[in-house]
């Protein structure tokens, strides 16, 4: 319009961020750890989307994967075990202008953090949740996790895991308000990048399960998948991921899919034998809690301080002229008046 093309409206005063700027400290995961690939794909996404580092937050709980925020050149919050999601939700509800990513391990998300996981899916707030699923507690040295395959010997199951492993995909797809579920494997960088990017571009809570190798405690877990690429079933849909030519030559097993069909997604998620990768389900029309509860206006730091002071004063002790008493919450105003 007005003789101007829309792409001519440029943010010329913004600086270009290259991938290096999204690199934090030197990653100290074990050699060959799959987290490296997830980190590289995420940094590439940040670079390609030109996410302002000061407007991007990575939140994690506890575990190997939880070191993720340290290795990103953005803001981050390394929180409590299983509590990455509520922390991230707090960040998002208070600062909707920030891009929020959550990195959790399988123990973090599917064990101690299960309640938060369920409600995070239901609340459908705008963020990307990455489940680094290596099927084991690695940081605490080889304990069984909810996704450890049945029969697997671990430090806590010396005679083999007795329970059948849980499927985080079918679990997520069974939760009310689910809006985005995808799966990737970290050793196919092209696929991983595209899945994370689709998750980032989704409006709502995007849950991405990433099958990840743990070379130290589960060195052979994914060997069959690595040696038989045909066992990886790429979901093929018009709005799904589009593999590069080189990757497509290796991963030839395709499955026609409809990302809008929840029942089909559930069926595919429960597939035995082959591992489905790509976008299983996407529904951008699900309402987001952060938008439903969006405040009419955001508060200034001064306003926030006033409210906090008032809240603290309620529990303060004021040895005043009329004797020691507990605060009522009006002290701030009175002090200001005085």
């Amino acid at each position: 319009m007005f003789g101007l093309k829309s792409e001519c409206v440029l943010k010329v005063d913004e600086e270009f961020h290259d991938l290096e700027e999204y690199q934090g400290r030197v990653a100290r995961w074990c050699p060959g750890c799959g987290d490296n690939g997830i980190l590289a794909a995420t940094q590439r996404l940040c670079r390609d989307e030109q996410l302002p580092p000061e407007k991007t937050v990575f939140v994690s709980g506890i575990g190997c994967a939880a070191r993720f925020p340290h290795y990103m050149g953005t803001y981050g919050f390394h929180g409590l075990h299983g509590r990455a999601l509520p922390t991230a939700q707090g960040v998002k509800i208070r600062r909707p202008d920030l891009k929020v990513f959550v990195n959790m391990g399988d123990g973090d998300c599917c064990s101690i953090g299960t309640a938060h996981w369920i409600h995070a899916v239901r609340m459908n707030m705008n963020m990307v949740a990455m489940l680094h699923d290596n099927n084991i507690y690695g940081l605490t040295k080889n304990q069984v996790s909810p996704t450890t395959p049945k029969g697997m010997t671990t430090a806590t199951t010396p005679h083999g895991s007795v329970l059948r492993e849980m499927n985080p995909l079918t679990a997520t797809l069974g939760i009310t308000n689910v809006s985005f579920v995808a799966q990737a494997v970290e050793w196919v960088p092209d696929l991983l990048y595209q899945v994370i990017r689709a998750a980032y571009q989704h409006k709502g809570f995007a849950f991405v399960r990433i099958l990840q190798r743990c070379p130290h405690f589960m060195p052979t877990l994914f060997d069959s998948l690595l040696s038989n690429p045909d066992d990886i079933m790429v979901l093929d849909s018009d709005d799904g991921v589009k593999l590069s030519e080189a990757t497509a030559k290796v991963y030839k097993t395709r499955e026609p899919h409809d990302t809008a069909d929840l029942n089909l997604a559930r069926e595919v998620a429960g597939t035995e034998g082959k591992v489905p990768v790509g976008i299983l389900y996407r529904n951008a029309s699900v309402p987001c809690y952060d938008e439903l509860r969006k405040p009419a206006r955001l508060h200034t730091p001064e306003q926030a301080r006033t409210v906090l002071d008032r809240a603290f004063d309620r529990f303060g002790i004021f040895p005043g002229a009329s004797g020691t008493r507990h605060g009522t919450g009006d002290e701030t105003d009175r002090r200001t008046d005085a």
């Binding site: 400290r25 050149g73 919050f77």
Partner: peptide
């Protein structure tokens, strides 16, 4: 030693153990 340069985005640590 392995922290980013001053001025880089900070990582807020609630546990005080790992970060």
């Amino acid at each position: 030693p392995d922290q980013g340069a001053p001025g880089d985005p900070a990582t807020i640590d609630a546990t005080g153990s790992e970060a």
